[in-house]
Design a protein around this nucleic acid. Sequence first.
DNA 1: AAGTCGGGGCA
DNA 2: TGCCCAGACTT
Length: 349
Amino acid sequence: MPANSFSRRVLAWWRRHGRKDLPWQRRPDPYRVWVSEIMLQQTQVGTVIGYFDRFMERFPTLERLAAGSEDEVLELWTGLGYYARARNLHRAARLALERHGCLPPDLDALTALPGIGRSTAGAILALAHGEPATILDGNVKRVLARHAGVDGWPGTPAVMRRLWALAEGRTPPRQAGPYAQAMMDLGATLCTRASPGCAACPVAGDCVALREGRQTDWPAPKPRKSLPERQTWMLLLHDDQGAVLLQRRPPSGVWGGLWSLPEAAGTAEADTLARALVGRSPTQWRALEPIRHTFTHFRLHIHPLVGRVHGPATAGVKDAVQVWYKPGQPPPGGMPAPVVSLLDGPDGP
DNA sequence: AAGTCGGGGCA
DNA sequence: TGCCCAGACTT
């Protein structure tokens, strides 16, 4: 089977079996494609759809996004994770308007914007502009690594170079948009990680992995190390009105820019911190069941401590770094998922 | 080249 | 339970 028919077979398959009704496919303008691509980084389609619809309702255009505040953007991002994506999206919207008056339609200008790399830029060009651009996301990597038998973990530059060369070599001069979509659909629905549906695959005829019966050997997994464990004590200080004290986290790092609970390194430190924050420590602490939260690179054990403080009537008062937040009210911005569950949970304060 | 950055889906 | 996912950025 000739190699140059790869894209033809993929396209023919997509026309029959591919996805064409996702929210960002209905009106695939550059802005909508961009937002969807950022949300879809490290996040699955089913999870993204609800976030995308809410985001588009609030920020339907690039101009509206640029005019919004970072807190609003982070609030809409709460629960999606990788919050640097949201901060970069917001910054890039303002930069794009400033530099180009729109989302620029060329690869170099796109990749110069924060949060847009080579693959996302290629997606915008192919899907929204119909240009013969190339994407290389997790799905495409998996399809190509199996079909061509590309050894090695794709996290290394050498393997990435090989995969990019393959990806670009197979991108057709026309129909690059449908082809990009088709490759992602192929990886997401057929050439899946655990049990690929090779019987229905349009490129099974010359697939190295299928021929050798080693589909799940590619792509090679990331070398794993054991996860470090960390502990933190989160303070749920609430006043007479039931408001809880939230603090804004530093602009970068874990949960950057999000509103979270004050944290201490232990129970003794919690007492000291409470005095520093509200001038007195609670008459007594109540420890809730610990929460385990796993990040990419460490595991966090959260020990929640509830304490009532008879402070001044400060509920609702917000400044740049702290706010007394009443659960059920509109949030002051984005919040980490475990904090949301602590404030909403039946076991909460 | 290695580390950082969340949360959820799924076997 | 562990692995991975429509990656990009920092050091």
